[in-house]
């Protein structure tokens, strides 16, 4: 199937430059752009800030980027599945910014929809709100959280059409649709590209305006 957005995995990853802020969709290994991450690890591009829910497992998936010393900083929610993250952080090799998961998702969404910051009751009064402005709304303390934007988003969808409209599969959807809105360059790894007009318009989750590059594993 022809798409003018189509690129090989290697060519797609060549667009990621040293020092970039890179968002990566996934929750554990569900909805994980595996071919793109393997190519990113193979490329050795370094000094990256990785914005993702977690960092996979030691030496596996996104964990490979840490084993390869390609990471300068992490912004995410949960690194207990990969104990190498705590070790690297304790040794001062990387910076880690922990964000509550719902706030993380909303901050990415906010970046995508033009909202620079928002107040949320989540985390008020906790360690994760330290240094952040707090204000009361409806008599509840709320924390000011800033939008999270990236240079590049690497996302995984189930199917794309030639234009780049995306549909997802079950809980592999997770952070992918919001990340598709929140980066300057959006690269989507898909399992299949179908003709335009063959996806039910009612079922398109990510309209093609957000998608810059389409790629598929093994190409």
């Amino acid at each position: 199937m022809y798409s003018d957005k189509y690129s090989s995995v290697t060519d797609a990853i060549a667009k990621v430059t040293r020092g970039s802020r890179v968002m990566v969709g996934s929750f554990g290994m569900a909805g994980y752009p595996g071919a793109l991450i393997e190519a990113l690890a193979d490329s050795g591009i370094g000094d990256l800030t990785i914005i993702s829910n977690d960092l996979g497992a030691p030496g596996v998936g996104l964990g490979r980027l840490l084993s390869n010393n390609q990471i300068r900083g992490l912004i995410g929610t949960y690194y207990n599945w990969n104990p190498e993250v705590a070790t690297a952080y304790n040794e001062g090799r990387i910076s880690v910014k922990l964000v509550p998961q719902g706030t993380f998702a909303e901050a990415i969404r906010a970046a995508g929809v033009g909202i620079p910051a928002f107040f949320t009751p989540t985390a008020a009064g906790t360690q994760l709100a330290e240094g952040k402005e707090t204000r009361r709304f409806d008599d509840r303390p709320c924390v000011l959280e800033e939008a999270i934007h990236a240079d590049v988003a690497l996302i995984k969808a189930y199917k794309a059409d030639e234009l780049g409209n995306l549909v997802y599969y079950k809980t592999a959807r997770n952070f992918n649709p919001v990340m598709a809105m929140a980066a300057d360059l959006v690269i989507a790894e898909v399992d299949e590209i179908v003709p335009s007009g063959s996806l039910d318009p009612e079922c398109v989750i990510t309209p093609h305006i957000y998608v810059d590059v389409l790629t598929m594993k093994g190409n």
């Binding site: 977690d54 929610t77 949960y78 690194y79 207990n80 599945w81 104990p83 993250v85 705590a86 952080y89 304790n90 880690v96 922990l98 964000v99 509550p100 998961q101 719902g102 706030t103 009751p121 989540t122 985390a123 008020a124 906790t126 994760l128």
Partner: peptide, 16 residues
């Protein structure tokens, strides 16, 4: 204890 680094959805869930 230096071994954990994660909050996940815990804070969102208890406040929401």
């Amino acid at each position: 204890n230096g071994k954990q680094l994660g909050v996940g959805g815990a804070m969102d869930l208890v406040s929401g």
